[in-house]
Simulated assay, not measured.
Amino acid sequence: MKRAIFLLLALTPSSIYAQAEHGESGEHQITDMLTIGHHYECISEKDLSHVFTVHQNAGEEIGTYAMNGEEKEVMIFSGLDTVSYVYIKDNSSINLTVHTDSGKFEVSYGGDLFGEEHGTCTLLGS
């Protein structure tokens, strides 16, 4: 739970930062990374049988994280060479970051899902 609260606070910018980062309106702008959409299949280096997918439709800031037939709705944020998929709900959290230039990922699980891992993602298309 502490990780989820920290993540929420870390992702919530102050109004001054929001204006500097996103313009005078303070509204989040969709970056080029999000306008094209992404669909990745990711495999953990820790356990090769641990395979999941993340999907984002072009222009949307909401996507899906799917593993073992279970799908979760995630918020999507983009950085310079990263796309992050964030899930916070039901006493658990997932923070997955895919490095689009290398295909590597890191994921941390909080709450009921506690743990972390890394591996490689393959772009399947949008």
Rank of each mutant, 00 (worst) to 15 (best):
I30N: 14
Q56Y: 00
G69A: 07
A20T: 06
M33T: 11
D47F: 03
E27P: 04
S25R: 11
G125P: 04
H39L: 11
L8M: 13
I5F: 09
H50D: 15
L124Q: 14
H99N: 14
A10G: 11
Q56I: 02
E27L: 15
D90E: 13
N68T: 06
A18S: 15
F105Y: 15
E45S: 14
T122D: 13
Q29W: 00
A18D: 14
H22F: 15
P13E: 03
T122F: 12
C121F: 02
S126I: 00
L48A: 15
N68Q: 12
I36K: 15
I30H: 11
V51K: 15
E71G: 04
L96G: 01
I16R: 12
Q29A: 09
H50Y: 15
L11P: 03
V54Y: 03
S25E: 10
Y87T: 01
I62P: 00
E45N: 15
I76C: 03
S15Y: 10
G23M: 04
T31V: 04
M75N: 10
T12F: 07
I30C: 10
A10M: 09
F77K: 08
T53V: 05
S49W: 09
V74T: 06
S84M: 09
E70F: 12
Y87A: 02
H118S: 14
E21H: 09
D101M: 08
N91L: 11
K2F: 09
K46D: 12
L9Y: 12
N95L: 06
E70H: 13
S49C: 04
Q19I: 08
E71S: 12
Q56W: 02
K46F: 09
E41Y: 01
L96I: 02
T120A: 09
G26H: 06
V74D: 03
H50T: 11
T35G: 00
A58R: 05
S108R: 08
S102I: 03
F114P: 01
A20E: 10
N95R: 03
F6E: 10
V51E: 11
L80S: 07
D90L: 07
G69S: 08
N91D: 14
E117T: 09
E41L: 06
K72E: 10
E70D: 14
V98M: 04
I43P: 01
D112C: 00
I36C: 02
M67D: 08
M75H: 08
V83K: 02
T82F: 07
I62C: 06
I5E: 14
S108D: 13
I62D: 11
N68S: 11
S44F: 08
D90H: 10
S92P: 00
E71P: 00
